[in-house]
Write a protein that binds this DNA or RNA. Structure first.
Length: 238
DNA sequence: GCGACAG
DNA sequence: ATCTTGTCGC
């Protein structure tokens, strides 16, 4: 932490951000890395009620050669945006189910490093531990940020579940290999549910509660929804 | 071998 | 993810 020219307090993410490994790995090494990193994910109760929640989402340039990440920080309980940042990188890894982190995490980290505010928690468009090797994008980023993260995906990657009742607020466990890896949550009545799982430093119970409290009017929780809106606009300038 | 498969 | 506007229904 330090004081910048305008005398405001700035948290130096370059220093607090964990740099656990490089990203240019073979598919095989990437999978091995996921298995070893998965054991580092922490399942602990949130220390305090989050007041600043950030949403992260990615998009691609029109020619598909660059990837863009956007971060939107919202202040609760009014969900007022207090800061937005973004980053642009060349695409260096293909989309392979289960290896999304190696495609999207680097640019997400670059965007988060630009933040001057310090979010209490991140909601990320993708899976947390609801992943074949228990290390989806939100869990992987959670280890780098060393902060509470929640994965909120629009569809299932792995696991089985019973369709929750159509009413908003209902949810059922997402199970895989005999364990509960996440929850299938109805954030809007009669609308397809979202797939929520712990990313890092929180419990599924917290993730469910926070997701529902952030899903005020739309299917996606506000942080992720606004990040998606923002990154979509940036895409147009591409 | 066949089907599934975050974004 | 992306190609793409209006339209039907809660």
């Amino acid at each position: 932490m330090f004081i910048d020219n305008s005398q405001s307090i700035v948290f130096d993410y370059q220093q607090s951000m964990k740099k656990l490994h490089s990203w240019n790995l073979s598919y095989s090494d990437a999978r091995d890395l996921q298995e070893s990193l998965a054991s580092k994910v922490k399942f602990i109760p949130l220390k305090k009620q989050p007041k600043l929640i950030a949403g992260i989402d990615c998009a691609f340039s029109k020619d598909g050669k660059k990837i863009i990440a956007a971060v939107v920080v919202l202040k609760l309980p009014d969900f007022v945006p207090v800061e937005t940042t973004s980053a642009l990188r060349k695409v260096t890894f293909p989309y392979i189910p289960g290896l999304l982190s190696f495609r999207e995490a680097p640019v997400c980290i670059a965007a988060v490093e630009k933040l001057k505010t310090k979010p209490d928690l991140f909601i990320i468009d993708g899976q947390g531990i609801a992943h074949p090797r228990r290390l989806g994008l939100a869990a992987h980023l959670g280890l780098f940020f060393d902060k509470p993260t929640i994965g909120c995906a629009k569809s299932r990657l792995t696991g089985t579940f019973e369709e929750p009742p159509v009413q908003k607020g209902t949810h059922n466990p997402l199970k895989d290999r005999g364990q509960v890896i996440g929850a299938v949550i109805r954030t809007r009545t009669n609308v397809k549910p979202v797939f929520v799982s712990v990313g890092n430093k929180c419990l599924l119970k917290d993730a469910i509660k926070i997701t529902l409290s952030c899903a005020v009017k739309y299917r996606l929780p506000e942080p992720t929804r606004l990040a998606h809106q923002f990154v979509s606009k940036l895409k147009l300038k591409t």
